[in-house]
Nucleic acid binder design. Structure first.
Lengths: 231, 231
DNA sequence: AGCTTATTCAAGCATTCACTTGAATGCTAG
DNA sequence: CTAGCATTCAAGTGAATGCTTGAATAAGCT
């Protein structure tokens, strides 16, 4: 191989790897998954991921350098968002590959969920039908902002943080399905766990909004569905 | 978030990132792309990538730990292969993401190719038809073993190394299309460059075998198509 | 202008990584 | 069973990475 060709090849793989490396840090993966829920400010991201603001900022710089996220000034703060849908798709692809490879990942999830008796996640195809027929109340337990940025049609926003105080809005007898950010997000697990302890018939939808939209399924945005709907 | 949930989350992202990290080294990317062409021994891989055998072996260990490649003893040597097709698909996805993100990559390729006037790559859809109609001779310029492991239907094996001595087999007037391992492989570029210098009507197919099969297009294996076909 | 606040930069430290070199392993063939 | 060879392991070095702390920017508000 000519020297020129070798240099070309090296440079090429270098560039590809740079994108890959940005995605290849547990911390940054978490940030990306968080941003897949919707735009956030640095402070919000830092708080959510339990990291220092400076550290979070640095990770965001790395992601930005790889053009995986974009940033926009909003008054006194900076709002980060994913650069485009391909990034989400890529993250999902990576996760799928990891699942296929690492048996441990599946085992880990099963252990964690089995501990709490939350294994049975509701099938997505089935869900839409049940929602449409009013047989089930779907609640979105993520923070309100994420709900507003996009949610499963017909879902009602009941952030986990507010769950305790809004139990009166929930049906005692008919089933409830909770969802959050995806299979590795613990909000819905937590919510279902609490609801069951209180006697509700609650189940968990494994898919989150990113999975949902990646399947080409529709999303609603904006409006808040308050009590009264499927109750 | 509960301490338990945080540990769960950390462990999860850690596992995903481990797979990611394996893919995220320029060197290992090159190895994967090479293995996508077919199984190889350590020595062959080392020689091809211009690395020391020990270093290559170590990279292969990393890939093996991530279950991206498998190894099999064959007499006195070890033969490595990709674990399954998903790995190939993932590499292609990464490359596409990288292309979309890094404008530089496109620029780099363009520069390199423009230097040699090899910009126009032949469209894949069009190609099959032209091959079927016998309007064009497709040559596979990779080493014979890779050709045997799988090639584009109707293509003739003319390894770059043998090109010089086999010019008599090639048509002087009707067009020739050369392909190799993919857009970043330089074999076809080299081949077309030489052929043109000699007055042949040669073009380059940008896609390689991995791209080809990833699109669900058929591959032939084994047989060697010798002179006489589309000449 | 001057002050406040969110974010970023810079320096420093411990850890990890890539590659080299030289020796050890494990297999086959004679 | 032993010689020979492909491959792997182990130790060492220089560079890169992740995280922390403390200071510097930049925009908005008074």
């Amino acid at each position: 191989m000519s020297r020129q060709a070798r240099r070309f090849k090296d440079a090429t793989y270098q560039l590809i790897a740079e994108v890959g490396r940005a995605v290849t840090s547990p911390r940054r993966l978490e940030l990306l998954e968080l941003l897949a829920q919707g735009p956030r400010t640095v402070e919000a991201i830092a708080q959510h991921s339990g990291q220092s603001v400076a550290n979070t900022s640095q990770h965001l710089q790395v992601l930005r350098a790889a053009r995986l996220v974009e940033v926009e000034r909003e008054g006194v703060r900076m709002r980060y968002r994913l650069a485009d849908a391909r990034v989400t798709e890529f993250c999902l692809a990576l996760r799928r590959l990891a699942e296929a490879r690492a048996e441990e990942l599946g085992a880990l999830t099963r252990d964690f969920l089995a501990d709490r008796g939350l294994l049975e996640a509701v099938d997505q195809e089935e869900l839409l039908g049940r929602v449409a027929r009013g047989e089930v109340l779907v609640i979105d337990v993520r923070p309100v902002e994420e709900y507003q940025a996009g949610h499963i049609p017909g879902a009602r926003s009941v952030p986990l943080a507010e769950l305790q105080g809004r139990l009166a809005e929930l049906p005692k007898r008919s089933p409830i399905v909770a969802y959050c950010r995806g299979p590795y997000c613990v909000l819905a697990i937590e919510a279902v766990s609490r609801l069951r302890a209180l006697g509700f018939r609650a189940d968990r939808l494994e898919a989150g909004v990113p999975d949902w939209s990646a399947r080409g399924l529709p999303l609603e945005t904006g409006l808040i569905t308050r009590a009264g709907g499927a109750r």
